[in-house]
């Protein structure tokens, strides 16, 4: 992907070519391209003079560094205890019905990916979720309808 190597150069110029620049660069690619392709990761290895194993090793460790294609909007619903107690299952069900996908899947138009994640730090206002970096808490079926209807138009 020519576009990917351009982006990597841009990010490396911004963050540097040290090993410690790796995480910000990986995060930058995910932010712009929604995921890290194999080619992209080998290109990063070349640009930073690291082995592909080092780049793949780091990338696959972190749950927010997706190495599979994701939609434009990645929805991560908190599944940790207090959100689970306060109705996470209904939230997931509502999202699955609205988006017509299951947890782990991406809509055919590549707009939404639905995932579960561990504690998001909104336990007092659960259930909670992130859409990309934006948190939503105190979720109800109605709220989900409003939020998703809004994102569908984005």
């Amino acid at each position: 992907m020519a576009e990917c190597s351009e982006l990597i150069k841009e990010l490396a110029n911004k963050y540097g070519r040290e090993r410690s620049s790796l995480l910000p660069i990986l995060q930058g690619v995910v932010e712009r391209q929604n995921f890290l392709s194999d080619t992209c990761m080998t290109d990063i290895a070349k640009e930073l003079d690291l082995s592909a194993a080092q780049v793949f090793g780091t990338a696959t460790f972190y749950s927010f560094l997706d190495t599979e294609p994701r939609g434009k909007f990645v929805i991560r619903v908190c599944k940790t205890i207090t959100c689970d107690m306060h109705g996470k299952k209904t939230i997931i069900q509502t999202l699955e019905d609205m988006l017509k996908i299951k947890v782990g899947e991406t809509t055919p138009n590549k707009k939404f990916t639905l995932l579960e994640t561990n504690c998001l730090g909104w336990c007092h206002e659960g259930p909670a979720m992130l859409i990309n970096e934006i948190p939503f808490s105190g979720l109800t079926t109605e709220k989900i309808h409003d939020i998703i209807s809004d994102y569908i138009t984005k």
Binding site: T82, N118, C119, G121, W122, C123, H124
Partner: peptide, 11 residues
């Protein structure tokens, strides 16, 4: 890197 379930004070 506050991540302990039930903790949200640092946020």
């Amino acid at each position: 890197d506050e991540g302990e379930p039930g903790t949200f004070k640092d946020r």
